[in-house]
């Protein structure tokens, strides 16, 4: 054996290391795989459990309110006066919807312009500035948005409007508009980029200007994606809490204008959740508002899924 082996360092032998390793290699292995597979699966299921638990726990407290207050009296009641047993959430619902609407009114055109710029007009250098800027905008904590709104925007509105405080839906709408920009821009840009180049080139080849192509071909083709960006921005705006609470003025009435103190579902919850005893109707009413927010958000997610299906169907057709 050894004679044959001379000069052949590379060849494994039946004895020595080769054999030792080989025996191990062919040995039985312990299968820890099943344990890991179980853990991975359990982690995934944890997500399902979490969302279910949130629905159940929030829903349960909300249901406790509805044993004392009729759901319609809650949803459409115009007066919020827990001390008198009145739990009308309409002022907050109106405030949330109005602030969100205003945010989209300002944020969507601005964001769409930003997305078009990034997707179609910006030079690589400009992109290198814009992209991190948008990421930073997304990273600023909402209390900081609130603080800047409170110390810069609210006084600015006060000075230029002649109103007493400057608090109100206008300030909230502007702050929210800035806060939804990153969400909207990045999703809308993706949608614009997903439009197949040949469609765009086809239009340009017909002698249309760049802008005509963008307005008449690109945006319509990317529309489902842009709509999804809008819906997700809406979800973000309606759930935003701290920044809004800091610039709204927090008056639980249906606001008579854009520059008067108002409240939203979120701002009311954050204000009251620490100061109402658990199980009291006033506390349960906060959970009912939370449930309302939850249902709105889930509804929006389902809407996004629907538009996404449409978007993929559209792309398939385009091909």
């Amino acid at each position: 054996m050894s004679a044959l082996n001379t000069g052949r360092t590379a060849v494994p032998t039946q004895t020595g290391v080769g054999a030792a390793v080989r025996t191990r290699l062919r040995g039985r292995r312990r299968d820890t795989g099943a344990i890991w597979r179980g853990l991975f699966f359990a982690s995934a299921i944890f997500l399902v459990i979490s969302i279910a638990a949130i629905l159940v726990m929030v829903g349960r407290q909300a249901a406790a309110l509805f044993t004392q207050v009729r759901p319609l009296a809650f949803l459409f009641g115009r007066v919020w006066a827990p001390e008198h047993g009145l739990y009308g959430a309409l002022p907050f619902l109106v405030g949330s919807l109005a602030a969100t609407g205003l945010a989209l009114l300002i944020g969507v055109p601005l964001g769409l312009a930003g997305a078009i710029y990034l997707a179609k007009l910006a030079t690589p250098r400009a992109q290198r500035v814009m992209r991190p800027a948008i990421e930073l905008l997304a990273g600023i904590p909402s209390v900081v948005y609130g603080w800047v709104g409170l110390t810069a925007l609210v006084p600015f509105i006060r000075r230029h409007s002649g109103h007493v405080t400057g608090f109100g839906l206008l300030a909230a709408g502007v702050v929210l508009a800035v806060m939804v920009l990153p969400t909207f821009i990045s999703l809308a840009e993706d949608a614009l980029r997903a439009v197949p180049q040949d469609i765009e080139h086809g239009s340009l080849a017909l002698g249309t200007t760049r802008w005509q192509t963008i307005a008449h071909v690109l945006i319509p083709a990317a529309w489902p994606g842009i709509a999804a960006a809008g819906i997700l921005s809406m979800a973000r705006a309606i759930g935003e809490t701290m920044a809004v609470q800091m610039v709204l003025g927090n008056s639980p009435v249906i606001p008579a204008g854009l520059i008067v103190p108002a409240s939203t579902l979120t701002s009311e919850i954050v204000l009251e959740m620490g100061s109402t005893p658990q199980g009291s109707p006033a506390n349960n009413a906060l959970f009912a508002m939370g449930l309302l927010l939850l249902l709105i958000s889930l509804g929006l997610i389902i809407a996004v899924r629907a538009t996404r299906k449409e978007a993929t169907a559209g792309v398939r057709q385009a091909h």
């Binding site: 995934a44 299921i45 997500l47 399902v48 979490s50 969302i51 279910a52 638990a53 949130i54 726990m57 929030v58 407290q61 997700l232 979800a235 309606i238 759930g239 935003e240 809490t241 979120t266 919850i269 954050v270 959740m273 658990q278 906060l286 959970f287 939370g290 927010l293 939850l294 958000s297 889930l298 929006l300 997610i301 899924r305």
Partner: peptide, 28 residues
């Protein structure tokens, strides 16, 4: 699909609702 739906839904839950949830589950 259920897991994906749960993930997306969870992502859309407003943070204040997580706050309410945490308050009753962990704090209380």
């Amino acid at each position: 699909s259920l897991i994906r739906l749960a993930t997306e839904s969870l992502a859309s839950v407003p943070s204040i609702v997580f706050g309410l949830f945490g308050m009753i589950v962990f704090a209380n």
